[in-house]
Simulated assay, not measured.
Amino acid sequence: MTDSEFDLSAPELTATDFLVLEDPYFASENVALVTGAASGIGRATAVALAANGLTVVGADVDADGLDETADVAANCDVPGTFHGVETDLTDDGDVEAVVDAAAEEGDVRFVANIAGMQHIASIPEFPMEKYDLLLDVMLRAPFKTAQAAMPHIRETDDGVGAIANMSSVHGHYATKDKPAYITAKHGVRGLSRAIAAEGEGTLRGFSISVGYVLTPLMVDQIADTAAERGLSEREVVEDVMLGQARTKEMMTPAEVANLFVFGFSKHAKHLNGADLLFDGGYTHTYE
């Protein structure tokens, strides 16, 4: 493939993108709560779970983005339903309210804590207000969401459900200038284990780790990096971002969403306290 043929755009979500599984809990009376549902991986996961027949409540501070997610779900003609709830994940009251809103839609069975953000700076130069914000969104909010959701899952007729937390290859190792992100992503792996430890076997906790994902935000970052370093966008992706990986292709949001579908399903009943790592060889190989 030549540079002129190198397609770097966030893919549109279509019905054929999603893994659809037969599962007794994938039904309209059961609810999945997805944070960060207004864009990227969160949007794809919300639509993927609705494609599996679940009632999905999406939480995000971006109300317009939630409306767009609802439109995508409608365009994909999903059998489940999607309800967006504007939510500030740094506000405990908002987190409790969105969990309560999910419980009003049916039996809360699944939670996907996906909302995330990034700030690039070295540790000596990292603004503490940014550190606090990143940790609030990516570590404290998942803890608070789990705290609020676990009683609802336990109150179902059999207590079966799962809470999944979005980690990253940066939850396995560290690179320069992403200290808050790395701290949070390591932390949610620990949170997932703590949920599993308290879940009594029926309420599972797990995390999902992936490498670079082709979201609209990532497309913008690639363009900026290419301009800053005098490289082609292909060189940025294959050499800078995927240089250590063996699979020289970025994941799509739908591919990540399908990991949540699998993880919540009966096929993953032994995925409990562990991390589901799909990183193209990033973490376990090196030159």
Rank of each mutant, 00 (worst) to 15 (best):
S207C: 01
M166K: 03
T16F: 01
T2P: 07
S168C: 05
G199H: 08
F26H: 01
I208F: 03
D220I: 10
P216Y: 12
A254E: 12
D62P: 03
A102V: 06
Y173C: 07
S122I: 08
L33V: 09
G171K: 03
A197E: 15
A115I: 05
A268M: 04
V34H: 02
S232C: 08
G36D: 03
G281P: 04
A50K: 01
A15E: 06
V137R: 10
G199S: 07
G281V: 02
G93K: 12
G187V: 07
D177H: 11
A115N: 02
Y286I: 09
V111H: 13
F126Y: 14
G205F: 07
S39I: 01
R109M: 14
T283E: 09
T202M: 02
G280C: 11
N258R: 01
E249T: 15
N75A: 15
R189F: 03
D91Y: 02
E155F: 11
E68S: 02
R246G: 06
N258M: 01
A274C: 07
A268E: 05
G42L: 02
D71Y: 01
E287R: 14
R204C: 07
E5H: 12
R43K: 08
H83R: 13
A27E: 10
H284D: 15
P253E: 10
L21V: 12
V236K: 11
M218P: 14
V160K: 08
A162Y: 03
F206W: 06
V20F: 02
E238R: 11
D62E: 08
H186F: 09
A180T: 09
A59G: 12
S9D: 13
Q221G: 14
H284G: 15
S192M: 09
F18I: 11
K185A: 05
V256I: 03
L135C: 07
M250L: 15
C76V: 10
A50S: 02
M251P: 06
G211L: 08
K248T: 03
P253T: 02
R43W: 00
Q221I: 12
A37R: 02
E155S: 15
A48S: 07
M1F: 14
A141S: 07
V47C: 03
I123G: 05
A15K: 04
D100K: 14
R154M: 12
T16G: 13
V261R: 00
A115G: 00
V261Y: 00
F264R: 02
V72P: 00
K269R: 14
T81L: 04
M1K: 14
A70Y: 01
E287D: 13
H186G: 02
A274G: 14
P79I: 01
L259W: 00
